[in-house]
């Protein structure tokens, strides 16, 4: 299983802070997004925006990054701390 977290504006827009997806061979961030898009729910298109940041196990990665079973993914808007 893959645990997926959403933060800030993205969490509010998606109406969820966390979900799980079954892992599959050769899964990448992009293929995971594509998988979510097949759920016939337009809201997941928000994840396609260029500005959305993706982290795997707390490390920021690109859309082509490989996902391993048990990984924790996070999607979030550009950060605004400090």
């Amino acid at each position: 299983m893959i645990k997926i977290l959403f933060f800030a504006r993205l969490r509010e827009q998606l109406g969820t802070r966390e979900c799980s997806v079954t892992w599959s061979d050769n899964m990448t961030v992009q293929s995971l997004i594509n998988h979510l898009l097949t759920n016939n729910d337009d809201k997941w298109q928000l994840l396609l925006a260029d500005e959305v940041v993706v982290a795997i196990n707390q490390q920021v990665v690109g859309r082509d990054a490989r996902i391993k079973d048990g990984d924790e993914l996070a999607f979030f808007p550009p950060v605004t701390g400090g």
Binding site: E51, A55, V79, T80, G81, G82
Partner: peptide
């Protein structure tokens, strides 16, 4: 500070008298 502002995962939401809004990067 420069790197914290652009890399550390914090998000600010501004709370006004009437309404609220996420702060843009």
């Amino acid at each position: 500070l420069d790197y914290l502002k652009t890399a550390a995962p914090f998000w600010k939401k501004a709370i006004f008298e009437q309404g609220e809004q996420w702060v843009a990067a």
